[in-house]
Amino acid sequence: MSTTSNAASTRPPAAAPASGETAADTAAKPTRAATASAPPARKRRPMLKRVADHKGAKRAAPWVTTLGLFVVWELAVRGFDVPQSVLPTASESFAAIWTYRDAIWMHAAQTLFTTVVGFAVAVVFGLVLGALVGSSRTIYDALNPMLIGFNSVPKVAVVPILVMWFGIGTVPAILTAFLISFFPIVVNVATGLATLEPELRDVLRSLGATRRDILMKVGFPRAMPFFFASLKIAITLAFVGSVLSETVASDLGVGYLMISASSKFNMPLLFAGLLVIAAMGIAMYELFNQIERRSTRWATRGSGGQ
């Protein structure tokens, strides 16, 4: 939870790499470095380099590393003879996904629903609040301590209150997802708006532009890369929020599924739940990553979406 703010707060748009690429890049780099430092293998270098730089290789890299993780997991559990009650194998976990597919489907749909609704509310709320905070020094000063204080409260402590107000189930999950994910959006939108170059403001003001003009013509377009960068973070946080609420106070959702699995000592199902949450998180992150790249090409000066 504490990583929320620093991950999102200060991210200059020009320097923001599209994070989707970095995994592929880092996977490709060692190969290149190794071949470069080995002169005798020079003849093979172009081919190796070609393989590493190949578009297909780049795209395959994250899949290969993920698959590798599962293989290591499987072999380690088997090799060290870890009992299933401590750590099931990867194959047992995937088997559990298949065995309980109907239940998982239902609970995952619920989690996805509460997450997306909570996230959507956070986007609207975050944009409005971010615009207010970012466009007026007074509002910034007035709201800043409260926002920071609010963000410091562990959201798990808020869930019981939400339950008292709304009962257990969908509403607290949506609200927790919202509460946990709006902060990075507010901070990023506000940062984007507040860091307007003074010369640019002067040029516009000298033309007689109103505050609203400046906000519409420059403020918001300039804040867009900040905004989209924060969406990627916010959506994954929203998952944290909804699952958290489900584990504490719900009879539906992946969080609830995992709690009930744990009370039945069903370790494979617990890990199945984790895998499903991670998969949903990655999918949503990638979705917003693509949206970010497409909508703010200028922020990377055209080199981001190769």
């Binding site: 010369e199 640019l200 420059v218 377009p221 300039r222 867009m224 200028w298 922020a299």
Partner: peptide
């Protein structure tokens, strides 16, 4: 101004 302040988008 010296800095061109053109809008990159």
């Amino acid at each position: 101004f010296q800095a061109s302040t053109l809008l990159p988008w």
